[in-house]
Amino acid sequence: MSTQEKWFRFGKNLSPKRQRGLTVASFMLPLILWSAISYVPFIWHPEVRISEVGDTIYFDVDDRIDIETFQLENQNMVEAGSVPMVGERVNPVYFPAPHEVTKALYSAFVTEPRRDGEPWFHESVAHSVRVVFWGFILSSIFGVPVGILCGVFNTFSKLTEPFVEFFRYFPAPVFGALAVAILGINDAPKVAIIFIGTFFQQVLVIANTTRTVDFSLVEAAQTLGAKPGRLLFKVVIPSVLPKLYMDMRILLGWAWTYLIVAEVVGTSTGISWFINQQAKYRMFENVYAAILVLGFIGLGTDMILGAIGRQLFAWEDGRRSAFSRLFRKTKPVAAEA
């Protein structure tokens, strides 16, 4: 089978083995490219890091200079009879190698802040997570019910959605100055930015998803005697819950993208503050490490939520969830027409 299987078949899935292989490759290919550029000298390495200065008066040990400058200066010094510089070809400081970033993923967490009172890296990360969490929770507390009501009742939809549709075109960051003026310089304006960035999209997305409810289920429930309250809570919401859950995962991703904007509003905090600090110190491996940490938190959260969702909504493909398997035994049943 594996030798016969074609790689490109329209609309068909590959074997699970190949799918897993490609998933690994999607991470390995960028890593291989990065390693090649970092470790193979002739691919890029446009600079020279000086290890011995010789007789030059212009440069110091560990300076990084363009390779052309290095060659020109050495040529001049050789012609003048001076001792030339010695150095090795390197990539620019803003392009650290994989092993340096890997090391930074650990060292960033254990390196003491440069100044008293500044947060450790893990404190910065926690700060960021906290801001996103509150922004997203507050947005959801209002956005999800409003969205569902808009999806169910035309009155709500027509009263709410036209304005929301208009408001969502204001980029959330433009409210930064206002948020600071109203809410002060601490976390409140940051949470507000994430709220504004999420809420208006959320109402529209949730409303649209709610509208996809299979209306024949609602009709069936009506003929079983269900009144509007029960229709909403026992039919519409359970029916669209898997899709709403998926929406929430996507919206959480959007909330993350507003984080970096939110964190520079008022006093700079969190991972953005850390990234800006490290860039000032030219500790670019820490910058990459911080960016990667953002990615890991995002992807990790989404994978956990995805796994929980597969258990919560096992009924979609007629499976019993792991939760319920813990408590109940299913009778073995033979298939029947």
């Binding site: 009709e219 069936a220 079983l224 005697g225």
Partner: peptide, 19 residues
């Protein structure tokens, strides 16, 4: 208005899939 005194069976499958 709709009510339980008039039960209905539809052409489409209308069992609640989460129950």
């Amino acid at each position: 208005e709709p009510g339980a005194d008039r039960g209905m069976v539809f052409q489409k499958y209308t069992l609640f899939p989460w129950l």
